[in-house]
Computed example of a mutant assay.
Amino acid sequence: MEKVNQTFYLSHGSPSLSIDDSLEARQFFKSWKTTVLQQRPKSILVISAHWDTKYPSVNTVERNSTIHDFGGFPEVMYKLKYEAPGATELAKRVKELLMGEGGMKRVDEDTKRGLDHGAWVPLMLMYPEADIPVCQLSVQSSQNATYHYNMGKALAPLKDEGVLIVGSGSATHNLRKLDFGMANGSPCSLGFGV
Score class of each variant (00 low, 15 high):
193 G>T: 08
79 K>I: 00
46 V>E: 07
86 G>A: 06
166 V>C: 11
164 L>V: 11
168 S>Q: 09
128 P>E: 08
131 D>G: 03
11 S>G: 13
97 L>D: 09
90 L>K: 05
60 T>M: 07
146 T>D: 13
175 L>M: 13
32 W>Y: 11
82 Y>H: 03
128 P>A: 06
28 F>V: 15
191 G>V: 03
20 D>L: 05
124 M>P: 00
138 S>K: 05
188 C>H: 09
66 T>E: 09
146 T>V: 15
17 L>H: 00
76 V>S: 14
145 A>D: 13
183 A>H: 10
21 D>T: 12
149 Y>P: 03
136 Q>S: 13
14 S>A: 15
37 L>D: 02
59 N>Q: 04
38 Q>R: 12
85 P>A: 12
111 T>A: 05
89 E>Y: 01
169 G>N: 07
101 E>P: 03
90 L>G: 03
167 G>D: 06
158 L>H: 07
132 I>E: 07
72 G>T: 09
57 S>F: 02
14 S>G: 14
50 H>K: 01
114 G>P: 04
167 G>M: 13
44 I>G: 02
132 I>S: 09
84 A>D: 04
31 S>G: 14
175 L>D: 04
82 Y>C: 01
172 T>F: 13
56 P>T: 01
155 L>N: 03
49 A>I: 00
151 M>H: 09
4 V>H: 00
90 L>E: 03
79 K>N: 13
189 S>Y: 07
185 G>Q: 11
130 A>R: 06
113 R>D: 05
84 A>S: 12
80 L>E: 14
3 K>R: 15
97 L>W: 07
15 P>D: 06
171 A>H: 10
77 M>V: 07
91 A>K: 02
10 L>M: 13
82 Y>N: 11
165 I>Q: 15
70 F>W: 05
116 D>F: 00
92 K>N: 12
122 P>Y: 03
25 A>W: 12
90 L>W: 00
86 G>W: 11
1 M>L: 15
68 H>I: 06
23 L>N: 04
28 F>M: 14
45 L>F: 04
123 L>G: 06
139 V>Q: 03
187 P>R: 00
162 G>V: 11
6 Q>P: 02
74 P>Q: 15
64 N>Q: 08
10 L>T: 09
72 G>P: 07
49 A>C: 07
35 T>D: 14
123 L>R: 05
79 K>L: 10
